[in-house]
Design a protein around this nucleic acid. Structure first.
Length: 324
DNA sequence: CTCCAGGGTTGGA
DNA sequence: TCCAACCATGGA
């Protein structure tokens, strides 16, 4: 049985095969599972999934529907040009409901951004002084998404103005305080906290995690907006034709500035023109690649990126990968 | 001890 | 619109 679904007319179809005991995704030929796994393995303190370099596979809880607690613990591995999704525990079964299986397949498809035709990006990057080395090194890597909007927003806020190592520590404490977990094989697998759970918290609940008072307020405020329904991924996705409008809508929210807005538009909404131009990591990558004595100015980055067009998000992601 | 970190808000020119 | 001051805390 071959399943083909499409979320929007402009988005190429998802291609996957249901083998019963496993789902097999058929990504574009230039997709590299190893490059993706390499990216996902970069932080040892990541709490939302587990990578196993030895077996070349990846384990995480994946939602099967919108209902909290409805999820499957799966193993994801690369297999000769395709991606295999199977139960984490051998001998057990994937969810039976066709909708649940489709949801799992769609989640991974979106997570790895498999609908994008990368050829135009590679064509332009090959001759770009900043990008040529990065696309050679990480060929086949796509923007690894943060599918859940609340998770993307929280991760953006948490990561503001602190180093990445500490940011991962804070995220772990936040998830362990407000998320749900499943134990398997001596390890906990977590779902990201729901907006409802965080909206009920107070600043005094968050500051013991070493989140600052401001960040605690931001996280609770964002959780409230999402819990009441005034902020949702489906609503934002209706504005995909106007990235400026998206940016404006997000930056109206307390705690979300231009950097966080573009970060979320890039990692969650997957708009290809998202560009967190103020990002320190981007600055450091450019400084490194051009062997500069100082970090580039915004104006210099604007000049360097004039030809990136609708590929600014991909350019940023590949440049980050050079240093992180 | 100093400097920096995948920024944001606030208040003033 | 643009800038400085302030926020606050771990890592190197």
């Amino acid at each position: 049985m071959t399943n083909e679904t499409s979320a929007a007319p402009t988005i190429p179809k998802q291609k996957w095969i249901d083998h019963g005991d496993a789902l097999e995704l058929l990504p574009p030929a230039d997709f590299s599972f190893d490059a993706t796994l390499g990216y996902l393995t970069r932080s040892a303190n990541e709490c939302m999934f587990h990578t196993d370099a030895e077996s070349g596979s990846l384990y995480r809880l994946i939602p099967c529907s919108d209902r909290p607690g409805d999820h499957a613990l799966v193993k994801i591995s690369g297999a000769d040009g395709s991606i295999l999704i199977s139960p984490a525990e051998e001998g057990t079964a994937l969810p039976e409901a066709p909708l649940a299986r489709a949801a799992v397949a769609a989640y991974v498809w979106d997570w790895f951004d498999l609908s994008v035709d990368m050829q135009p990006f590679y064509d332009l990057a090959r001759h770009d002084p900043l990008l040529s080395e990065a696309v050679k090194r990480f060929y086949g890597l796509r923007i690894v998404g943060i599918t859940d909007l609340f998770e993307a927003l929280c991760w953006g806020v948490i990561g503001q103005q602190i180093n990445l190592a500490f940011a991962y520590t804070l995220k772990r404490r936040f998830v362990e305080a407000f998320g749900q977990s499943v134990q398997w094989n001596g390890r906990a697998y977590w779902t990201f906290p729901t907006p409802e759970a965080v909206a009920e918290a107070t600043v005094d609940d968050l500051t013991p995690l070493q989140l600052t008072g401001k960040k605690s307020e931001y996280l609770i405020g964002i959780a409230g907006l999402m819990a009441e329904g005034s902020l949702s991924k489906s609503k934002l996705l209706q504005n995909m034709d106007d990235i400026r409008a998206l940016e404006k809508e997000l930056t109206r929210i307390r705690g979300i500035g231009p950097w966080t807005a573009n970060y979320v538009i890039m990692r969650c909404l997957k708009h290809p023109a998202a560009f967190p131009i103020e990002d320190v990591g981007l600055h450091n990558a450019i400084k490194h690649l051009l062997r500069m004595e100082r970090k580039p100015t915004i104006e210099e980055i604007e000049r360097l990126s004039v030809d990136w067009g609708n590929w600014k998000a991909y350019a940023t992601f590949y440049l980050w990968r050079v240093l992180y």
